[in-house]
Structures are given as structure tokens and as C-alpha cells.
Amino acid sequence: MRLSTPNLQLNDQGELRHFLTLEGLKPRHLNQILDVADGFIDEQGQIRKVPNLHGKTIMNLFFEPSTRTLTTFEIAEKRLSADVVNLNIATSSTKKGETLLDTLWNLQAMLADIFVVRHSESGAAHFIARHVAPHVHVINAGDGQHSHPTQAMLDMLTIRRHKGDIYDLKVAIIGDIQHSRVVRSQIQALSLLEAREIRVIGPKTLMPPDPAALGVHVYDNIEDGLDDVDVIINVRLQSERMKSALLPSEKEFFNLYGLTRDRLSYAKPDAIVMHPGPVNRGVEIDSEVVDGDQSVILDQVTYGIAVRMAVMSIITENAAVLKQSASVQQEADA
């Protein structure tokens, strides 16, 4: 008798309306994003400007500071020919609920078509999506420790372009799993795309309370965890973890879990190394590995633009299709 809530981010036809999380999506949704993103990258690895979102207004609402994500979103939006407005809103000014919603409704009245949102609270993008007008789309650019779906999709694109397919790959993610929205989304993407095994490597203090619920295997020991893997994903370690007594020091973390060339040799010889950035050289990863042959870290940045273009054009296209089918229906009714 409990009311079931329809997936907030899908429209009546089961297609993406918002892009909030990868949880609840079908593999086809992910593959579509990857295929469209591939199409934006030409043979030289360049991304050209296209008219897909001409006349649309996109507002980048960043309630939490960011440079990299904001920049790649902005570039992606401009390559789609959209009009772009950036708003850096200090969280302190929106402590009160009415202010946050009032801010949104005001911006909506300025005829925004897409909100790209980053916020320090898990679930903030869901909250915003629940309260915007039906024609406005919300794209999650990172909410608390919950989700960062465009980052995960650019990682999938990177893996696919280097490895051909995600299916059957063994992937190891090293570092702070518990506090990372990027990792949560990566794990969901890898599960949906049927990676053979997803491993997480790190001390228990940096693991979520129930890792099995995420469908991953935990390794305390990095050498065991890296054994025979195809893809290694390194995660940034934040200094707050030392202050809250989760780790003794950066040095000890590097000694136990730092990705060095020696440790890399446990993985498959053609394994690739990824990092969502910004990289802490000598804390979670050795400089030699960052700059080494197996590193694809800079590709990730470029593909990030293509993936964000793909998400925004798919969502806009889905809305147009929905509108068209509604008007066809109306004509038929008349």
C-alpha cells in the first residue's frame, strides 16, 4: 500500500529527463551517453562546436566551489552553442530552505532550460529536481558524498576508448571510498556495464559501512587488490581524513596504499591508470605513475567535455521527442 515513487530522473517514456545518479538507470541509458559522446570526438581527438543547444539557456549553479568541473561544463555548454550563466552561490546564504528554493524559482523565471548543480549535501540534486518546473532539466555536477554521474561516465568513456569494452574487465579503485561521490557513481556505472569484478582497496576507516551493498570486494592489501586487474582508478585523499582520526598520516597512507611503479606491476601489463583529479602526487600516487605510459589521466579531462555535451544534448532531445509525441497525440485527438 506504500506509494511507489517513479524514478525522478526519467520521463514518461523511460528516457532521461534529469541526470542525477546512475542508480536506477538501464545499461542502454549509459551506452547511449557513451555513443553520443564518442560521436562528438573527431579522428584527431578534437571536439568541434555543434548547434544542438542553440537558443537554450544553461545555468551552472555551484553551491560548492569548483574549478575543473565548472570549467569543463562551461566548455561543453559552449560547444553545444548554448547560452551559459555561471552562479557561484555560497552555501551560507542558502541555509534557509525558502532561500534555496526562492533562488531556484527566481532563476527559473529567468527562463533557464538546464540547471547544472553542485552542492555539498547528498541528495541536493534530487531535492532541486523535485521542485523545478516540468520543462527545466537538472544535471548533477556532484552532491555531497552521493553522486557525480558525469564524472563516472567520462571515466567509462575513457575505459571504453582504451579497452574496447567495459564488459569482463577487472577494475580496482584505491583510496577513500566512503567519502567519494565519484567512486559511488563509478561503482554503479561499472556494475551496470557488467565489469567482471569491482575491487576497492583501502583501510576500513575509508570504506562505507556496508561495501557489499555497493557490490564491491574489499581488499586491505594493495598488492592482492591489484593482482591481474585491467583498470586502476586512484582517488584523491583529503587532509580532513587525518583530522578526524581516520588515518594517521599521508606518509603512512602512501606507504600502505600509494600507487607506485612496483605495485603497478601486479596489474595486467596493459592496465590503465586513471584519477579523477586533482592529483596529490606522492600521497595517493607516485609522480612516475601519473606521468607514465599507462596513465590516461589527461584523456579523462578531454572526454569529460564530450560526455557532458552528450548528457545535455540527449536530455534536450528527449524533451523535444516527448513534446512532439504529445502534439501528435493532440492532433489525433482533435
Partner: peptide, 15 residues
């Protein structure tokens, strides 16, 4: 609650 759901949602858990 600190458990499967908070692990998935990235909400701060209460053990």
C-alpha cells in the same frame, strides 16, 4: 542509519 542505504546514498551514517 549507518548501513547499506547510507553506503549507497552517501549520507553520513549513525552507527
Amino acid at each position: 542509519h549507518s548501513g547499506a542505504v547510507s553506503s549507497r546514498l552517501g549520507l553520513n551514517g549513525i552507527p
